[in-house]
Design a protein around this nucleic acid. Structure first.
Lengths: 349, 349
DNA sequence: CTGAAAGCGCTTACAG
DNA sequence: CTGAAAGCGCTTACAG
């Protein structure tokens, strides 16, 4: 068996109480004793048994992040940064991958059973239930990031600000035959979804977002493939001068379709994705995209959790992270006035 | 507080022992009693306290996977599939992200302290130490996947079989000015690294792999950017007809450099990446790449861990997963005989 | 400043 | 088939 506090106590001829106090930094040990204990514990590479500690104190490991298996690469990267950053604060940070969103409740309960200080649910949209009570009995802070656990602390990604800028760009640069990929399952509560931004830009311009501009995009597996298929078909029968491809992966497929159909038309069709994948800047024709400030999100998450831990009963908080259009080669704009117009400040909330 | 076994026992007027036996599926409870207990436990959404269970039995949560923060997307996907697949077998599966490989030892010790049934270390190359003893005292099975914890059960990715095929392709199709990106830190123990395959193909063809064919590729941050920079420079002063770009991300940068320099030369330069990212098929010019059979790796990992748990002291095992070239538009080959030659069977071990 | 003792929630050998 | 009891390793209120 591995070494325990009582082994150290025996060796050093003190009581386990003293060893515990010394190692956990509590008062009530002489500084000299503490140093002796710490030094010996290090020598024999002692580590407290987290299970025993958790059982005794009722508080388990620090943070557990719950995220779905199929999520865009940006979400994976976001979650990992969050995890390593919060590891420092919480002492430990594990993640749990949900293979099927319908099992979310099972996973959360499993996470709660560990009595962690905090749980983050990230990027899960298809399940909505309230766990405030369970969180309270476990004294666990729960933060919902880009997920729909309403009622808990929430960080919402406002995708509409970016798509609004994009749509303005399309309209201001005279695109009259746009195509907007529309995910039938994108929930658009409260106007933060992609579609809301598009609708706002049309309304603002006094124009109508005609139903024929929208194309259903509902990938079961490969976003790029579906983007390619949809657009190959579309190009055969329609003229298109602007595309919003829902995300960068799909935009990649669209780009390939355009390239196969007619390489020359590449520069005539404005193409915009979403997510700003690391690769998007380095495509042969770099891809315009929409992204959020990752640092802002990370900081928000960190501060909201710390706040919640200080007071589990304080009123729930909600932070909104806006998105922004990034103009690259796939939708070149040179006119400075248009650019000014696109990024003009608006407050939709 | 949340509900405990003794609460159920009280309510049902039985002893905690019986409740424990009923819930854990152990013998020694009448079937009728068991059903009554299970049904009540479900009603009140009882979950055992994992900390208490772990403390009592000396065995903690199922599986912990340790992986580095900066890894290619394919590795992320691989790890998540592994995690969800093994979750079923182990009952629980958490992952731990290492922000800095130098901290690996700290993370493994932290994981071991949880007394998990198994630990997987995945994709960590810069630390090598032996933890057999610690694993034995914790009765934890440790599997090293594409990492260098020699002495433990290991799954090795043999990158050389793919690069050997690629190099044959270059040579057989008459490329005389190749460029091979070479990572200075790629450890090449036992001939499984990218470079080994290239060397073997040259040797086999009776040709010399000249030093000027190799270019140092050592990305600190963005692989695509570095690929782009290296290749933009290269094109200015040399003629090139074949490129191995180390990975798909770098290949993307190379592709962009080629495209910027002279779009027409696109089809004259054979370009191959590594990893077979999901996007690589959908680039305007689809990217040739090298990949491994993911299913084989997952199955191996699963069976090796299960084996190890049955017998912690059995001799350590080692499995080798070969890689294969995938020929796409970035290195078109039409001659059937050449294709036959490229994929000719060889045994280098 | 230090130690003896209780108890967190569970499981399991032992007794019936 | 069922229950009483011990104990996993830790922490903390209590006593000195």
């Amino acid at each position: 068996m591995s070494i325990a506090i009582k082994d150290i106590a025996l060796k050093l001829r003190v009581s386990p109480s003293t060893v515990s106090r010394a190692l956990s930094g509590k008062d009530g040990v002489s500084e000299e004793m503490r140093q002796r204990i710490i030094s010996y514990a290090e020598d024999c590479m002692f580590q407290v048994n987290p299970a025993a500690q958790a059982l005794r104190t009722g508080k388990g490991s620090g943070l557990i992040l719950i995220a779905p298996m199929n999520r865009p690469e940006v979400a994976r990267i976001r979650d990992e940064i969050l995890l390593t950053k919060l590891h420092q604060f919480f002492g430990s940070a594990f993640s749990l991958t949900v293979d099927n969103e319908e099992n979310l409740e099972y996973y959360i309960k499993m996470a709660l059973a560990e009595n962690p200080q905090a749980i983050i649910v990230s990027g899960i949209w298809h399940q909505n239930f309230n766990l405030l009570e369970a969180c309270n009995t476990h004294k666990t802070a729960l933060l919902s990031i880009d997920s729909c656990l309403a009622g808990h602390d929430e960080i919402i990604i406002d995708r509409s600000t970016g798509t609004e800028q994009m749509t303005r760009m399309f309209l201001l640069s005279g695109c009259s035959h746009p195509v907007y990929f529309k995910h039938p399952e994108e929930l658009d509560t409260e106007g933060y979804g992609r579609l809301s931004g598009i609708q706002r830009a049309y309304k603002e311009a006094g124009l109508e977002l005609k139903p024929e501009y929208c194309v259903e995009f509902n990938p079961k597996k490969n976003d790029s493939q579906l983007g390619y298929e949809i657009f190959s078909e579309l190009l055969k029968r329609s003229y298109v001068d602007a595309v919003f491809a829902f995300n960068d992966l799909a935009a990649l497929g669209v780009q390939r379709a355009i390239h196969s159909f007619n390489p020359a038309s590449n520069s005539e069709i404005k193409l915009v994705g979403f997510d700003d994948l690391p690769i998007s800047t380095y495509l042969p024709t770099s891809l315009s995209s929409i992204s959020i400030k990752l640092e802002t999100l990370i900081e928000q998450a960190s501060s909201m959790l710390q706040q919640r831990i200080l007071d589990l009963n304080a009123p729930r908080e909600r932070a909104i992270i806006p998105s922004t259009l990034l103009i690259r080669e796939s939708s070149r704009i040179t006119d400075r006035r248009i650019i000014g117009e696109i990024f003009r400040q608006t407050n939709h909330n």
